[in-house]
Design a protein around this nucleic acid. Structure first.
Lengths: 193, 193
DNA sequence: AATTAATGTTACTTTTCGGTTACAAAAGTA
DNA sequence: TACTTTTGTAACCGAAAAGTAACATTAATT
């Protein structure tokens, strides 16, 4: 019996991560975490209080914040700026199983930690929208509407892609479908901005 | 003990409906249905075979696209048609808790009934897209892309609206946010079609 | 060295779940 | 009437779930 609480906590959190990536947040249950981590479940209660506490800690450690470095983007060309933002958003979601599971979980859970995530996300989003407004001269509502249309659909399709390959004949579980979608998004920005 | 199988089946299916609207398809479990309906659970097995069978029965005639009348496809005004069909889709989703729960369920489940739904939905969608293509002169990929963008985002936002009030500063849990979004959709169609 | 606190193991209780068995009552049928 | 089938009730079973209690070991403190 080696006594090393930090190590134990890390093992437990790592186990949470594996479960989340594999099966989603809904599958993070006390027995599952215990067996996945190889640790006794009473340690989970002792160190994290509950599954909610464990998830809160996991979310805190893992960087699920929406953080874009807008300073790197082309400031003069609004269209290029917008296109790049959404490209980055798609890449982020498409490359991270855990993030997709988080977005899915948000659709059915009212976990307290989620509100914090949303607040921060909202702040970042509003900053980006504001800067597009400034660059393009469009109204806030217009830019917010377009952003919403694009990000919401991307979120939906990325989640759906894990269970379903085709949507409106688009191959959303492979690059080919996403290229077509990106093309559509680019086209839209060319037309409306 | 009154013997009336039809009545019993209806009670069970009604119970499923209440559970779905309240908690979603994930919560439709044998014990839950039994206690919600007041019927013994063995009757569920006898009459529906399993929870899967019960859900398959419940799902008949529940989906928007399945009930879409493809005989009324657009004759002249493509823009008006496009705007109208997405309006109808939004109204349907916004007014039906069960349909929202179905769309949410699809994001995490691989239930056999879902594949059937998707296949039929896909057929309907392709018919609509094809006729819009013909009238507008746009390419299939373009129309499919736009449709995907709109329907996917609407689905996402309707589901999210049950747990979250604001998205990109849009009030998605009230009419005000949806009016703005509809305006954006209309604007987009005016510009690109 | 003795005591205390922290860490970890094991086994237990209790609840809930899906699924089944056994049986009773009603309705149809010979 | 005697029987068979259908419809329904109630109790039961084993597995898996959350949560807890009791105890053992190590580390820190005095």
């Amino acid at each position: 019996m080696i006594k090393d609480r930090d190590n134990t906590e890390r093992r437990i959190l790592d186990a949470v991560g594996r479960i989340v990536e594999r099966e989603g947040f809904e599958a993070v249950r006390i027995n599952a975490v215990a067996s996945e981590s190889g640790m006794s479940k009473i340690l989970i209660y002792r160190y994290f209080g509950s599954i909610d506490g464990l998830l809160a800690k996991y979310l805190e450690d893992k960087d699920f914040w929406l953080n874009f470095d807008t300073s790197q983007l082309p400031q003069s060309d609004v269209k290029a700026f917008s296109k790049q933002i959404f490209r980055a958003y798609i890449n982020m979601l498409r490359s991270s199983p855990a993030l997709r599971k988080l977005y899915r979980w948000e659709l059915s859970s009212k976990h307290p930690s989620i509100n914090e995530l949303r607040k921060r996300r909202e702040e970042t989003a509003l900053k980006i929208i504001a800067s597009v407004c400034e660059l393009s001269g469009e109204s806030f509502d217009r830019v917010a509407g377009i952003s919403t249309l694009v990000t919401a659909s991307v979120s939906y399709l990325c989640i759906l892609g894990e269970n379903c390959g085709v949507y409106n004949s688009l191959q959303i579980d492979s690059d080919s479908g996403w290229e077509k979608l990106l093309e559509t998004i680019d086209f839209m920005f060319d037309k409306i901005l």
